[in-house]
Amino acid sequence: MQNHLHNRSEMSIFIYAIILVQHDQFDSSLLLETTDRISSSGVIYLVEWNSVSAVVSNIKTDSLTPDDSTVMEYANVIEKLAKNYDVIPVRFGTLFKTIGSIKYMLKKNYTTIRQNLHIIKNKCEFGLKVFYDSKKLKDSFMLKPVIGQEEDKANFPNAKKSVYLDYINKKMVIHRCEELCLSFTNSIIFDIKECFARLNPVSRFEKMVTDSNLISAVFLVEKNKENELIYAVKSLKKRHSNLNFVLTGPWPPYNFVKLTNQL
């Protein structure tokens, strides 16, 4: 049957997430037929410590290919768990050697895990991306180089043409453009916060992610608030017809879980 010469490191344990539940209360029928890409046996099981459990499956260490379909399989497991439990997603690709080491990890981080579970209890994540035309925005600022230009000749009659001053001028235009973009972004974030205030979310914003993605935000809100969120985004669109808004969700709380006491 099995090749008995197989390498000690051949098998590992892949962790999907950590949840708050005891073994006998876990409904594993939730997870049938979902993991043949990650785990050839397809079996998902729990490793418990106290009142938390790691959701895992056995995997051949070298066989994990991080491609779209594998990642989606991992995400589907988490999605299914999130329907019934509070879930802490664990970074894709985290492997442990033994069940004992998983228990040790759960024990060592027990307090933080419980704190994370408390923060996400009955909540889910939504994403909001705001798109803009950066060229139009920058043009609207109408910036021109300033230093050492005609206006200055009056004050500095002996001002020489200088490649270094030109360099500073160019950088200054870029700098002021960035500052103006930043304050524009901040004003949109202010509006977003205003429109979302009723939902009392925990929120995180990324600014000017790409040339067309002005803001990328995530929100942790109570479950079943889709209608209020949609309403909030539609009012944002009314206020800013030159921007485009994409609201997605609900998601498991990928962006709102953190374990910092390890390094």
């Binding site: 962790i15 995400a75 080491s101 990928y254």
Partner: peptide, 17 residues
Amino acid sequence: ELLDRALNKGIVLAGDV
């Protein structure tokens, strides 16, 4: 959006391997 979350987010654990 799913890939963006699944590839980048979630907690980081220091496992054995």
